[in-house]
Design a binder for these strands. Structure first.
Lengths: 198, 198
DNA sequence: TGTACATCAGTGAACGCGCGTTCACTGATGTAC
DNA sequence: TGTACATCAGTGAACGCGCGTTCACTGATGTAC
């Protein structure tokens, strides 16, 4: 089934991977066809042999960025769990880490692109909604099983909002202090056993 | 002191007001000099008699959008308080309202533009950081006086994140359900008297 | 009150530039016999 | 194994377009006497 990928497929993947990084660091509008092709070691003319349009690349790059971020989080979370941390703590510590604050290009595309997403073309918005649902599902998987419905989406919103606020405050003491406070809040409130108050 | 504003000042204000709405509905990149001038009933040539550059307009429009949003919230909050609601509830109910979900162009610029802000020119980023601090200050003013330091920034992050997640899910039942859950969570957790468990 | 002139807000044509997209072509890879 | 040909990935010039910015000009407003 997974035969050796063709030469074209390898190039395609390289373009998508390049775009997925650029997308998160410069945003939807900061990513140009010629730019991406050049960074992937190609000329811009060949682009349309790989994608129907720029928007088609954006949708693919968004999905790839989400997968990349999910895989990184999973790996870091495994390291945290092996130190005896809860799954929730492993997620929160990694999502709200100083490293994530400083490196949007390899981080969560939802946090890096949230406010631009509602303004994208249909295909891109669909990919965006899928990324949000995937993030919520990841949070759900680390919450105590008896958490009320909707809790995962609330925690995901707190993660995304806190990282964005920290980035707006800047990659400095102010931003990092905010991240630390948000980590502490989430763990105190959501790590099982849950605190009193229904 | 506040003499009658000159004709030029009136035009200037009209451009900024037009830009402040367009900015929130289409984002930093969706706002063009010629477009704004046309919407303000002018031709694009006169732009540079009012602003040193496009970025200078963006910074001014961002500040104006923040003031506009703050004034609207204050007004709606007063209405809520007159119904006997706490100040926190008045803020949360209005910030996370279906109306705010559906109308970014007259809403909070931080929620509408958060992920684009770190990528703007210096002057714009400074204006952005000021908007974030202003939002945090507004939250602080409605929290119980004994809330730990940093709480206001955490609640502000939850407000911004929840509205953005709702907008990514769409202005539909899914998005509105998420907003309702976030409202309930914030009130249960932060409305005084604070629940047990520090 | 009326005329002459200076000031000033706004006009519209033009500029250089970078963008997304198209397309005729090239050179390498793979297949047929 | 070697030759002839078809396929295909990638090249680079060109396109139409919209952008931010500049600038010589116009027509209205305000001031001096």
């Amino acid at each position: 089934m997974d035969a050796a990928p063709s030469r074209k497929q390898l190039t395609h993947d390289r373009i998508v991977d390049t775009a997925a990084r650029a997308l998160r660091s410069t945003g939807f509008h900061g990513i140009g066809v010629a730019d991406i092709m050049k960074k992937a070691g190609l000329t811009h003319g060949g682009f349309y042999a790989h994608f129907a349009s720029r928007d088609a690349l954006l949708a693919e790059a968004l999905e790839h960025a989400g997968e990349d971020s999910r895989a990184r989080l999973h790996k870091s979370m495994a390291a945290g769990e092996s130190k005896g941390h809860s799954r929730l703590r492993a997620l929160v510590d990694n999502y709200l880490s100083d490293r994530h604050l400083a490196s949007p290009e390899s981080g969560c595309p939802v946090a890096a692109l949230a406010s631009e997403m509602p303004r994208q073309a249909d295909a891109v918005r669909d990919a965006a909604a899928a990324r949000v649902r995937s993030l919520i599902a990841l949070v759900e998987s680390v919450l105590p099983a008896d958490a009320p419905a909707g809790t995962a989406a609330i925690v995901a919103s707190q993660l995304v909002g806190s990282l964005q606020v920290a980035r707006m405050l800047g990659d400095n003491a102010q931003g990092r202090r905010h991240l630390a406070a948000a980590r502490q809040f989430l763990l105190e409130r959501f790590e099982s056993p849950r605190p009193a108050g229904r």
